[in-house]
Amino acid sequence: MTSTQNVRIPTDGAADGAVAATSRWRSFSRTLGVVWSNGKARVGIVILGLFVLVAIFAPLLAPYDPKDTSFDRNLDATGAHWLGTTAAGEDVLSQLIFGARISILVGLAAGVLSTLIAVAIGLSWGYLKGFASEVVGFIVNLFLVIPGLPLMIVIAAYLQNGGILMIIAVIVVTGWAWGARVLRSQTQSLRGRDFVTAAQFSGERAPRIVFREILPNMTSLIVGSLFGAATAAILAEAGLEFLGLGDSSIVSWGTMLYWAQNSNALLTGQWALLFAPGLCIALLALSLTLINFGVDAVSNPRLRDGKATK
């Protein structure tokens, strides 16, 4: 057996030998290539990339401190203040640039957390049969039928002034159910496949079958669900802030809208105060949705070659 000594065989349950790791990396980069080759997704990636760069380098890019109230109030766009100043005398452009941080942070954190919950619940719900499945189904349906925004408002009002963490928590609690439902139906179709039965015959236990056999086969669906959840989180965060349910002292696009509304920006002719953060929210949500077109092409190859040849 000397010839086989140099071959690594997993004995601890981890399957990634050196060769498997490289092939996994190769398939990952191929997947990225598929997403990039989709025109819509490319636009989305570029927009998202710009926002991320702006958020990271906000202190370098912003001309002033966003909370500096020392400027003249309600200024129109000038050379010193490209988008004017607020009713409190802050620079709008600086606020806009720093606001990107909050939106991206909340979108990422709330999106990832609610997707994690959706994966855990959706997959076990799809794999289970009988009474347990009914119980999970009841809970998920409960969250689905309660209207999201009112529930968010109630929870947010109850946890007064919890700041950004509270907002993330509220979005996660109200946002996981839809993803769980989508992932469950895919799990149900995969659990009928022979390789799942074969894993049972190999002596695997249920959690391992769910997370090692089934889960890797739905990666693109989970990524799609992540982008969807992040989009919803960004919109929900802006909505809650706009309604004044968050911490109105932090600088985010939502609070900018809140203050602009409070100071009747439209009546004073300062449309940029409402328009700029609104456009940014829309663009960020749009970029994630566009990326999802590319992710769809990963899970459904027919969407890739459709237009290439006649």
């Binding site: 065989i9 399957a15 498997a20 056999e213 890797p216 086969n217």
Partner: peptide, 11 residues
Amino acid sequence: SALNPLHTVEY
């Protein structure tokens, strides 16, 4: 369909 497409023969 009896083999998981993402796992090596070894696994």
